[in-house]
């Protein structure tokens, strides 16, 4: 077992926000977390990364990663883990990237912050190699580009390349395709699957797109109101048991159905 989350409670200040969450993930598995807006999906994956915002803290339960109790980590240990053992991509990695600095400069900087022992030349080589691996054509010119010169999909690939450069064992992706059109979304989802196949990384994917979740996941988790209401394999979608899962599935807008204004 790569990651084992047991009976996790998370609070913001003294407000209990997430409770009793259990998750189990093996190397090379993709798990999707879907569910209600505000139910705590982002909160859960941030807790796993050790980066809860504001007054957020784990108030109960355990997070075991590679046999280690994550809740015992010192800030220094977290810094050594993040980026190297586990890493995260966001809705628009383009936003995370500084708009006025070239991609290459930022990538090299990122590598050297996490691995000060690398020379600049080595970092450049690692960056280009990784851009190649996420199938960005012409890494040389990508390195020279400013973020606005790249499409949303290309920026997201850069985000994946940065997240994967140290070959982490766990990749956390918070709505990585919500800001992308369907073609680009399909490319990025395939990219995530390819990365999993090539590096054996485990992935937790938070998404509102049940089609995406159904397509990529080995495991699915449905959250509502701070709790997991249903979890399992594909049958969560093909044969849902919980009323909320059914409600979600019924609400998916499907091309060709009756228009909202005719209902």
């Amino acid at each position: 077992m790569l990651l084992e989350v047991k009976d996790l409670n998370i609070s913001y200040g003294d407000k209990l926000t997430v409770s009793g969450v259990d998750l189990e993930l093996n190397t090379g598995e993709i798990m999707s977390i879907v569910g209600e807006s505000g139910s705590g999906k982002t909160t859960v994956i941030r807790a796993i990364m050790g980066c809860l915002p504001g007054r957020g803290h784990v108030s109960g339960g355990s997070i075991i990663f590679e046999g280690r109790d994550m809740l015992k980590n010192t800030p220094k240990e977290w810094r050594q883990l993040c980026g190297r053992e586990m890493s995260m991509i966001f809705q628009d990695s383009g936003n995370m990237i500084n708009p006025i600095r070239r991609i290459g400069e930022q990538f090299v900087n990122y590598i050297r912050t996490h691995a000060p022992e690398k020379t600049k030349a080595k970092a450049v080589e690692m960056a280009k190699d990784m851009l190649n691996k996420v199938r960005l054509p012409n890494p040389e010119s990508i390195m020279q580009s400013y973020p606005f010169e790249l499409s949303g999909g290309m920026r997201q690939r850069v985000g994946i390349a940065m997240a994967m450069v140290f070959r982490p064992k766990l990749l956390l992706a918070d709505e990585p395709t919500s800001a992308l059109d369907v073609t680009t979304q399909a490319q990025i989802i395939r990219q995530i699957v390819d990365i999993r196949n090539e590096f054996g990384v485990a992935v937790i994917l938070v998404t509102h797109n049940l089609g995406v979740a159904s397509y990529v996941s080995n495991k699915l988790v449905v959250m509502k109101n701070g709790r997991v209401v249903e979890s399992g394999k594909r049958e969560v979608i093909s044969d849902p048991q919980d009323a909320y899962t059914k409600e979600l599935l019924a609400a998916v807008p499907v091309v060709g159905e009756v228009k909202y204004y005719d209902r």
Binding site: G153, V182, T183, A186, I189, G211, V212, V254
Partner: peptide, 22 residues
């Protein structure tokens, strides 16, 4: 665009074929 939509009821093994070029 229509072909790149992920359907909830996709059959296991079914592939999605997005445009690959930029």
């Amino acid at each position: 665009l229509l072909k790149a939509v992920f359907k909830v009821d996709f059959k296991p093994g079914e592939r999605i074929e997005p445009l690959e070029s930029e």
